[in-house]
């Protein structure tokens, strides 16, 4: 009985000391720290109570609350669409997200101009998703297993927008930036 009580007390302590801070936002960024980083030259802003944005060379790096400090969540890169029939100003958005267990996800979203039966043009959004383990090489794509040609899509993406090296550079910069918190 006493042993059970001890176990329960230990669990409460562990929960209170280790898990609650993460859930309750102890890993959130303090506004003084954000101001200090601004003074150091970082283009940093609080997006909401759980999210921080740093913009660097046009790339947006997002950080979310961690257990003890903010952690890198994703980077968003925007660049002009290179589709042959893209309209001026149309941009693609590339999101490079950090996943659990050393995995990464890249989502490519592009506007596409479609016509209905009457010939009226509508702008829709098409996307491709690439999931990786370890690095951004084609060999480490993990979602190329269904009917869709994810490998071929990735070849197009890397030859048109960002190479595996470019993706790694942005991703690693996101991890580096997380160290400033």
């Amino acid at each position: 009985m006493q042993r059970t009580r001890k176990t329960i007390i230990t669990m409460i302590i562990v929960f209170g000391v280790c898990i609650m801070p993460g859930i309750s936002g102890c890993g959130n960024m303090k506004s003084e720290k954000i101001d200090a980083l601004k003074n150091e030259g970082y283009a940093i802003e609080q997006v909401d109570e759980n999210s921080i944005l740093i913009t660097e060379d046009g790339t947006e790096y997002y950080f979310k609350s961690g257990i003890t400090k903010p952690v890198f969540e994703k980077a968003v890169v925007k660049m002009p669409s290179k589709k042959t029939n893209a309209k001026p100003g149309q941009e693609v958005e590339i999101t490079i997200a950090k996943e659990n267990m050393g995995r990464m996800t890249v989502v490519y979203t592009s506007p596409c101009n479609l016509k209905d039966a009457a010939g009226n043009e509508t702008v829709q959004s098409e996307s491709m998703i690439f999931k990786f383990k370890k690095d951004f090489t084609r060999e480490n794509l993990t979602n190329n297993k269904g009917f869709a040609d994810i490998g071929g899509n990735y070849d197009y993406f890397t030859s048109t927008y960002m190479t595996a090296e470019d993706l790694s550079a942005v991703y690693n910069r996101g991890l580096e930036l997380a160290e400033i918190f």
Partner: peptide, 21 residues
């Protein structure tokens, strides 16, 4: 992982909208 439900939702909407239009 990241944003899966939004992506599927987007694909679904794009396809059904196109059929409708």
């Amino acid at each position: 992982g990241y944003d899966s439900e939004n992506r599927i939702e987007n694909n679904r909407e794009m396809f059904l909208n196109h059929l409708s239009e």
